[in-house]
Amino acid sequence: MKKSTRILARFYVGIMLLLMYAPILVLMIFSFTEAKVIGSWTGFSWDLYPDLFKNKEIVTAVINTVVVALSSAAVSTILGTAGAIGIHYSGKRMKSALEGVSQIPIMNAEIVTALSLTILFVYFGVQFNFITLLIGHVVLTLPFVVLSINPKLQQMDPNVYEAALDLGSKPSQALRKIVLPEIMPGIFSGFLLSVTLSLDDYIITAFTRDTSFTTLSTYVYGVTSKKGTLPPTLRALTTIIFVFALLLLVLVNIRKGRSKGEGGKR
């Protein structure tokens, strides 16, 4: 391609990236000043960071968010791994039925999923508590675990499992020692995907939680709909989350880059 088009291409992609990061960068810059709203700089200060950790409401919300994300991802990963293996070895009819059901929460609008779960709990007179919230998040993330593991199962050489059986290992041993290591990358990315989906969720959380239980999403939604602009301490929180996400993404991709060297598609 011509040099002029190349410069134009770089300029265009650069501008788009800048726009994508504008809201986050602005928050990050203004996390170092105590101004009430973004746009007015009242001198450099670190104070929002200690303020953030002193704010019990925010700290609780963040801890709750992480607890929900990790526990729902753990449940989804276990259910989903067993499910994916089971589906893989099921007969044709069962397989397509289960794969079809897995597609429902993925294709469905999140608000419809949320409403349907709420109606289920109300219909059977279940009190909204941590368990209902957990179920909501497992519904949200479980199909994605199955989807991440499925390609690994299909790439697997079925003869190795049979060979293990021929050589005298029990089926459970063969599953543990042959199948699980083969699909481990899929399990790992399914778990990570579950965590990210759960951390980001607002709608299902808002519908299935006990209203006294706040997560980061419900907390931010609550304060922005009452006061309007984001409270200053949340600028510090955004900066911390961003740095954390950046580190995690770099780590995951270094790991992925390494395993790619050993051949095979993701």
């Binding site: 602005v26 973004i38 746009g39 980001d200 969720d201 980061l216 999403s217 922005t224 984001l230």
Partner: peptide, 24 residues
């Protein structure tokens, strides 16, 4: 990946940040 990265910041927080920036 850089284009996808902002999705790792909480969705409600990200949306509120966009609104505050537009307001500014």
């Amino acid at each position: 990946l850089l284009f996808v990265m902002p999705m790792w910041i909480n969705f409600v927080l990200r949306t509120a940040a966009t609104r505050d920036l537009l307001y500014w």
